[in-house]
Design a protein around this nucleic acid. Sequence first.
DNA 1: TTGAAAGCGATACCAG
DNA 2: CTGGTATCGCTTTCAA
Lengths: 341, 341
Amino acid sequence: MERVVTEKDITIKDVAKHANVSVATVSRVLNGLDRVSESTRKRVLKVIDELNFVPNTMAASMVKKKTNMLSVVVPEIQNPFYTAVIGGTVEVAKKAGFFTLVVSTNGDEAEEAEFFESFLSKNVDGIILIGTHKEAEFYRTIRKPTVLVDRYINNSGLDGVMIDNYRGAYEATRHFLEYGHERIAIIDGAHDFNDGKDRYWGYQQAMVEFGVTPDPKYHKQGSWLEESGYRSTVELMQSEYPPTAIFAANNLICQGAIKAFRDLKLDIGEDISLIGFDENELAQFVQPRVTVVRRPTHEMGTQAAEMLIQKIKENDADQSNPKKVVLDVELMKRGSVKKLN
Amino acid sequence: MERVVTEKDITIKDVAKHANVSVATVSRVLNGLDRVSESTRKRVLKVIDELNFVPNTMAASMVKKKTNMLSVVVPEIQNPFYTAVIGGTVEVAKKAGFFTLVVSTNGDEAEEAEFFESFLSKNVDGIILIGTHKEAEFYRTIRKPTVLVDRYINNSGLDGVMIDNYRGAYEATRHFLEYGHERIAIIDGAHDFNDGKDRYWGYQQAMVEFGVTPDPKYHKQGSWLEESGYRSTVELMQSEYPPTAIFAANNLICQGAIKAFRDLKLDIGEDISLIGFDENELAQFVQPRVTVVRRPTHEMGTQAAEMLIQKIKENDADQSNPKKVVLDVELMKRGSVKKLN
DNA sequence: TTGAAAGCGATACCAG
DNA sequence: CTGGTATCGCTTTCAA
């Protein structure tokens, strides 16, 4: 039977002993920075291999105070928008030598708070956060380089990468108006964060500018989930004066609306006009395809990661003058809006 | 201007000093386990608060050799199957007091290997792994409690939670056969892992049992991605003798097939019969809905987490007798298979 | 080029 | 109930 080596307990000390050098020397060859004679380096390397030695990263990090890890914290991992952002950050982080890991908070403040208490949050070098907490207070207690994505919290003191929600909603609504619609409904969720508020505001402003008074019965506010979008759509379409156009304020709501239209046997672009906010699977599947406000999801992630890494490298703990980047959105016109006259 | 406290450098020592106690005592109140007089406990707590002291989890973990963190490593975070598994493990882990974080390897062996080199992998208490590496060798080097999910690697020496891929594919194919189909195609990807192989095998066995010789031209092997499913479907349907039924061997391929049928203007359940493996968004959207082999995704995650936590608690490093759990699949019959006579 | 020793910031055992 | 101190495993001056 082969010899079973218990690698568990092998430390730098053992290596030093077996190689007849000091731990300092072993550490040197381990980190490759200092000058070590070629002969001893080889000897140490050999012992490391023989002993199957794996350095304890924790001990190292404890003195270096650096782990080369980033974490990205999102409300839900099922939403393609978030995974797109994650993809962007991972890509940039990787190039810069950082390992990225993902934490999903389920949109639960307690879970988010838990993360910030955890071993992990204390030991990553930086955090990219799509926050769930609403009060700036929470964010001000964060003691780590952090950049906010998508949802920005005023007075949080943190950097952020956002999009122009206002303009996106405004353009969508204006598109409806220009095509002759007036009974334009908006389906959204709670106005907990700036994004939701801004989208509603953009919708409203466009209406007002075109001299159409937003009718409260055309504002269906539920949750930001698909099911809610479905229900709101059904209610809207079964009401006495159904709208001719619906603006679905996020990807999930839009999917819910599309499913509702399927069940109600309403033809999109014919019986009802629709614009969604953010790309989504069904919008690209149905025919005609659904017009959406597209945002640079991937780029939001890359931007955020770049800002974060910059901050880490500069060892920038300065929260006094947060940088905000606002990326542009684009109305992808497809066939879901009917021209009225 | 307010006083700016540099919490960074406050350690248990400072607290001890300010509270006129030993570090041992501070550690005690920190961990709450040992008996400390109510008065000193209060005093220490007060100082902790005043100084805004945050214990260094790394130092603690270094001696405790425990972080209460689990990590789940998946090939891609965009695939709903994986997020469902993740959801299951997080749920169980949380109840057991473990924090879970997610790592996506992009199905890249190098990235997966990188994870196992990283600070993180060294410092979580356990790992749930949907592996990308193909050789058992790689898995045998893992020095952490680990449970494999979905893809099982023989001789890896690791525990695993899988499903009965063979039976799923077998049932699907048999369903086609019982409905009178004979020109049954299968679209799959590389047979890198047991799951793909088993599904193909199940398909084949069913055919043979019904006396139908599997025709190689009805086996389209591409990648496991949607685009490949789309292309294979188009090729199949535009060939001289198109199949009457298609078995799409995973969720993405099935979505690709559905999109292809849309573009080819073929009615599912009428012009072409379809069964997918694993639930997916489009299968539930189109009408009639698509019959699929459903697997207990969430449960795979919970099962794996339970096994892992058990292992951790037992401090079980024994790899000599890996446990394998095989969960059952179910054919969800919907309207996508036409009865032929 | 190499080694000795002082940390890094907690925990936990042993006394008292 | 409380304190002293060795220890966890590695990095990093400071000397040699």
